[in-house]
Design a binder for these strands. Structure first.
Lengths: 340, 340
DNA sequence: TTGTAAGCGTTATCAA
DNA sequence: TTGATAACGCTTACAA
């Protein structure tokens, strides 16, 4: 049923090796036979088999991506960046979901390797550091692996990160500049290193102006709005609640705002909120969210580029740290703004 | 470098066909040699080549997905449904982005076919109806194609849809029940048939209670919050503005709410809003959004199931229409609620 | 229970 | 400029 190179060869009565050359536009075949063959190919509805080609070229032109959660808006934008640059470079993307489970992640990598993907990109790699080290150190270093947003502290292999520390500092500094002194941090999952780094930035900013750290002002959220909501409820129940909150990410911030509104606190008059990520919906939150933007698409782009460079044997930078930038919108206001 | 079945054969001094059988747990090989071979395989770090296997089995255990926009929360959840059920069934997913461009979509399908995916799922297929008909009618009907949310009216091939008409009716009826009489509809892109169907549901609900349709109450948005925002501004500028708005989707609703807030209108006291989709963030909007839920994951599941059934030659239903259900939250209130 | 050999659809290396 | 032919790594009759 599927027409192959041999069928075409038979149809035009030429050896199939010549057909192969003609189809690949090799200059080593006479123009007119080349055209004849190509015409016949489309006429017969020929579709080359990438599978067969891969077997001999040992390249699949495929990049495997494993992500912890596809529906996370931040990841979705990173993946978009990956997919777009991959396609431009002639690669396809195999996407798998690890659901944040290290063993799923490892299993997914295994599957991708069986499929002989040319490279693997881990978005928010959650496998243990040892497991990751093994991935990179293994004798079959064949498949390049690049990590976007390592979940753990220790750096292994090639990675693309955001300047979380700087982002945390800038966010906190912004709140300090507005006159806030009781500033809380709603963290992400305890396991995530990016949350720790953002918290470190927060702490450094506070200490830089001589403010003592109050452990009561650190609440733990998760990767969902619900986590931000609950954390915020706890903060608001404090005897001396914060007047401003820096959140692990935008979704957390959304949950936090919801909790504030639910008890009649207004943002930013009564409470200032800063997020992280700058997801596409952030400008439409009520009020539009002040946040720290990550270079989401660029992360995807850089990851693909790194994989391709690795494949080409070109020099690559081991660890990219992309800048995070403050985007001031309306969820932050001067301390005491409610009195105005 | 990569160890193959032959390397193992050599290592244990057994023919490689036996090795193949042993690795596939064929009962046709003595238990002890099977164990010997399997032990040796892991010892040598053998990773089967899915490529080589596919070449002979003519199955890649791969499903190609082409989606118009990965970062759309609705699509992301559908894709999650696809990916999860695919993995469970032993399939991998190749994801491509069409960016809503028909020619990209067709090109993506072409690529997927070259990769010999076992089936293709089009999420919000945007190619022209003729192009789609050709896809289904083509002589090489080999690769099953299933469409989730056809963008056009005409039904072709196999598809999974949501009950858009019913959803539009229920949403509008909900607003009517609350006493609203001037109800607007903010549509999606004019090209999208689902928006047309939702609008039809809206119109039917109005007509059922004897209300005349006012063309001024139909505004056009797009797939982004910004479209909802602009459309809402237009509606609010009307001499006799609506007291309630049914929106093409949740993101549109978010933009609409933003526009309302920006001019001091409160939701739901001054204006009731209903969305469509029930994306994960909808409960955290300010106020939490009343909306029509689509069975997003199920759509993905059903699509994969249909592809697999088609592959197995089993009977499949040509067109699934999944129910849409009203989720009442806080963005809708009784007409005149602002006076309370 | 094991081995031999053909073949999947290409590319690539030689010769001609 | 073209043609044989050998891979690529596997599955699968068919034989032994």
């Amino acid at each position: 049923m599927t027409v192959s190179i041999k069928d075409i060869a038979k149809a035009v009565n030429i050896s199939y090796s010549t057909v192969s050359r003609a189809l690949n536009n090799s200059p080593r075949v006479k123009l007119e036979t080349r055209e004849l063959i190509q015409r016949k190919a489309v006429e017969m509805g020929y579709l080359p088999s990438a599978i067969a080609r891969s077997l001999v070229t040992r390249r699949t032109n495929t990049i495997g991506v494993v992500v912890t959660k596809i529906t996370d808006l931040f990841f979705a934008e990173v993946i978009q960046g990956i997919e777009e640059t991959a396609v431009i470079r002639g690669y396809s993307v195999i996407l798998t979901n690890s659901d944040g489970k290290p063993d799923y992640e490892l299993a997914a990598i295994q599957t991708l390797r069986e499929r002989r993907v040319d490279g693997i990109i881990l978005v928010a790699a959650c496998a243990s550091t040892e497991a990751k080290q093994q991935l990179f150190a293994s004798p079959e270093i064949e498949t390049p692996i690049v990590i976007i947003n390592n979940v753990h502290q220790q750096h292994v292999g090639y990675s693309i990160e955001t300047d979380n520390l700087g982002g945390g500092q800038v966010a906190t500094q912004h709140l300090l500049d507005l006159g806030h002194r009781r500033i809380a941090y709603i963290a992400g999952p305890s396991s995530e290193w990016d949350s720790v780094e953002r918290q470190q930035g927060y702490e450094q900013a506070l200490q830089a102006v001589g403010l003592a750290l109050d452990p009561a002002l650190i609440a733990r959220g998760n990767n969902f709005a619900q986590g931000g909501l609950i954390a915020m409820q706890q903060l608001l129940a404090l005897p001396d609640p914060p007047t401003a909150v820096f959140c692990y990410n935008d979704v957390t911030a959304l949950g936090a705002m919801r909790a504030a509104y639910a008890v009649g606190r207004r943002v930013p008059q009564d409470l200032s909120i800063v997020g992280f990520d700058d997801i596409a919906l952030a400008p439409y939150f009520e009020p539009p969210l002040t946040t720290i933007a990550q270079a989401k698409r660029e992360m995807g782009e850089k990851a693909v580029q790194t994989v391709l460079d690795l494949l080409a044997g070109e020099p690559v930078v081991e660890k990219w740290v992309l800048p995070s930038t403050l985007i001031v919108r309306e969820s932050t206001g001067v301390f005491g703004g409610s009195k105005t």
